[in-house]
Design a protein around this nucleic acid. Sequence first.
DNA 1: TCTGGGGTCCTAGGACCC
DNA 2: TCTGGGGTCCTAGGACCC
Length: 450
Amino acid sequence: MSIALVDCNNFYVSCERVFQLRLRGQPIVVLSNNDGCVVARSPEVKALGVSMGVPYFKIQELVRQHQIHVFSSNYALYGDLSNRVMLTLGYFSSEIEVYSIDEAFMRLSPHFGDSIEYGSQIRSTVQQWTGVPVSIGIAPTKVLAKVAIEVAKKSSRGVFALASAEQADEYLAKMPVRDIWGLGSRLGHWSATQGISTALEFKQARPKLIVKKMGVMGRRLLLELHGFSCLPIETESKPKQETCVSRSFGQPVTSLPELKQALALYVNRAAEKLRRQQQVATEMTIFANTSRFIEHPHSSSKTVKLPSGTNFTPELLGYAIAALSQIYLPNCPYKKVGVVMSGLHSEQMRQGNLFDLLETIQTSQSRDLERERLLCEIVDRLNSRYGAETVTFGLVGKSQGWRLRCDRRSPRFTTCWSELPVVKADYNFAEQSNPEYNSRSKVNCWANRS
DNA sequence: TCTGGGGTCCTAGGACCC
DNA sequence: TCTGGGGTCCTAGGACCC
């Protein structure tokens, strides 16, 4: 049994290229929310030495010099293309773990035959059906599949297989220890202090040393590197344990009403997420930070225990706004607010609240949970049909000077009616009779619209 | 001038129980 | 000299991932 790891090449960049053919071969970067950092680079940009996560303002000169195309993140597009890739993979294995927006693990049974050939078949199908190029690494364990995919990305074929753990040693010897999947920069640094600098040295280190420092994670890593699979492929997505919505502001915000408005929007979105996940929260934390890079950075948070599990927006808004007023400092240049919903459980398991019951007895008026549910359902349906925040709660408001920057977002080609690509086809009856011409249909795709 | 957002898992230690 | 033993639950913080 082997495990294949499928990884979309420069995923966000590839998504931008799917509908804009003129971008092929051109240098491209995609920026994080708020146009803050570089989160995806085309190979042409990587070759210029631009590293992942670098703040955009630091590369502006390079962008001018090399005429790099710059895009704001377009998550509607990336999410939709990701779904298409994952659905395509579903044709090749029934055991798939969607690990992130651009990666999936798949189980390959021996009856699939030659793994390189099968991998190549998967690769060309994904490319043909979705337009997204992928690389594939195949190995006996997940950690080794991560090693294999690094080799695959550099190969012309885009597919690489490690038949055994021993075969991996050649590559592990060349791999810095911090590049092992699950071992980050901190533990990488610690390893270096122990005289371990390559992945192979890590694999051959004394297990006691590793386990003492890293606990069960270290034990698992060692086993996986030796070819014993102990990280299973998780085909079912587990219910979330917490859900967070937060954004940085385009400009620092000092006024409480503006902060409230931003927080209200995020609480609104978080409540929508909960309902989509069919969950309720029993705890909510709100937080507000200044930039980390100013002289006296400040951050504060407040956690509210909710009297009963809820995903009812007005109720959550009430608690969130009250909590924000408690931590607010006048004249503080806030750069970010957010909300974390935690203590989540399934809507079906919702716990009643004794005080609601007492109030019902005292006032003879019961809180009508069914009515609340229906109200939210209608709001959610309107928003899903006509666009986010078509209908919302009063606090969320309209004027949003603090909204984040996303000046360079490409059209939402696949999820928004008004932004669908336009295809023009020249169709000439005279030429139609010429079979050779007919076989090469002349299609002029959305290429010049921007 | 400018520096993202959203998660998960594990562990140690404190509080508390009998 | 010598201050029990065994357990649960919760939380904060560390580390990691894309």
